[in-house]
Design a protein around this nucleic acid. Sequence first.
DNA 1: ACTATATTTGCCATATATTGGCAAGTGTAA
DNA 2: TTACACTTGCCAATATATGGCAAATATAGT
Lengths: 107, 107
Amino acid sequence: MATFGEFLRAERNKKGLNQSEFGQPFGIIMTEISKIENGRKKFPFTCLEALAQFLGQNYSELKNLYVADKLVEEAHKYECSDVVFSVAESQSKYLKSKNFKQGKIKF
Amino acid sequence: MATFGEFLRAERNKKGLNQSEFGQPFGIIMTEISKIENGRKKFPFTCLEALAQFLGQNYSELKNLYVADKLVEEAHKYECSDVVFSVAESQSKYLKSKNFKQGKIKF
DNA sequence: ACTATATTTGCCATATATTGGCAAGTGTAA
DNA sequence: TTACACTTGCCAATATATGGCAAATATAGT
């Protein structure tokens, strides 16, 4: 398990591409790729589906990795212990059951 | 388990206060409390410690509830399944061990 | 129906955070 | 010292979030 940036760098190296080449298919400039790999900026969500295709990976799983990265950042920003993720999971389940009861299907 | 807003409302009701009275000690106006309880705005983080005191609750636990709420919102925004929270926990542990090795104590 | 109280919502100006990109910097190897 | 890959600082443009007023909507008592 690694951060999203580290994951991207590893995938890029697997393909033997430099940052310019790797960014090309998504219209992302080299310096941005650098920042993304180093966790200073986020990979644009609008390009995530294209990324999944480019890497030949499952979109949902890639998205989980992507979003998890954001969650971890948020949790660390507030200096929370890891139990916050369990709490979040409980709250999410609660919300889903609540919305289900109210007939709001989406989620 | 409930959302942070629902939790606040329940605590407020326990105390038998209206939204104006409840917001008073934190300098938060009634309409804001309403929005917070209904999840349209966030309770200001800068007031969270005061809130813990006011409610006679443990600050860290309250913070977990508070941050978990944000995480859930983020996860739902991207329509992620709940496994994203497990993925996040793994990534968090990974990050901590990595930072530990590099001698960055904080977290 | 009328009043009073409590709450919710819409709107908007302000503050805060995030993005994308250029220019300048570091590092490394030929 | 040149070439290449990468990193960082800075800044303008964009997007998000916040706080508060005014208006709308309950809800309950008379």
